[in-house]
Design a protein around this nucleic acid. Structure first.
Length: 200
DNA sequence: TCGTCGATCTACT
DNA sequence: GTAGATCGACGAG
């Protein structure tokens, strides 16, 4: 059921980002499983991508996770508040990552509502990278964990989308990256209610 | 060592 | 529409 390790070793991170749309992601934390399928992703293309933390081959305690072999999670803190969840891909030494920006929740709804401090289901529950991580209970404690583990994994349940149903646009929140901010590295399912707002 | 700014979200006015 | 939260990486000094 879990996507095999070989899937993550592909060196075409842009193609992989698109492939992840419609895949199911789950976490099992404190014995509770939560998850849903991915509806929005962004690619971060290694050391030549100014928008990536690993631009210019920067290796720090935070970014070293990205340099490991594909198939693990990269979780980091942004703006001092929000945890962001990425999938590390490609081979060791090549810091590719895919930011999961939005999912459509299917499992453990009540737990996700509790984690998000919400009383009723609204699209905003898993819309935007900070919200996704919070709803799934993802924190830096599981940084670098394997996607073959029983805490965090991704499944292929045969859900696919045609090219026409997928929008390809520039990334969000990376204006500091100069011309690289214009690269069409963001993918989402057109019309899906859980896709984050900007650029829609 | 200090100051700046970020792959953001929420709660206000 | 916009301020505030508040940690880690970086560059200047």
């Amino acid at each position: 059921m879990k996507i095999p390790p070989s899937f993550y070793l592909n060196t075409d991170v842009v193609h992989l980002s698109k492939s992840l749309l419609g895949k199911y992601i789950f976490t099992c934390i404190d014995g509770v499983t939560t998850g849903g399928y991915i509806v929005e992703t962004e690619a971060y293309n290694g050391i030549i991508d100014k928008a990536s933390h690993s631009y210019g081959n920067r290796i720090t305690p935070r970014t070293q996770t990205m340099f490991m072999q594909g198939g693990i999670a990269y979780v980091y803190l942004c703006y001092g508040i929000h945890e962001m969840f990425n999938v590390v891909t490609s081979v060791e030494g090549q810091p590719h990552a895919i930011l999961i920006r939005a999912i459509q929740p299917t499992e453990g709804l009540d737990v996700m509502l509790y984690r998000r401090n919400m009383l009723a289901l609204k699209p905003s529950i898993t819309s935007g990278p900070g919200s996704v991580a919070k709803a799934l209970g993802i924190s830096r404690a599981i940084n670098a964990i394997s996607l073959q583990s029983d805490t965090l994994w991704i499944e292929d349940r045969g859900l696919t989308f045609s090219d026409e149903a997928i929008a390809t646009v520039p990334r969000v929140g990376v204006s500091y990256a100069g011309e690289d901010a214009l690269l069409p590295y963001r993918f989402y399912i057109k019309g899906n209610a859980y896709v984050s707002k900007p650029n829609k």
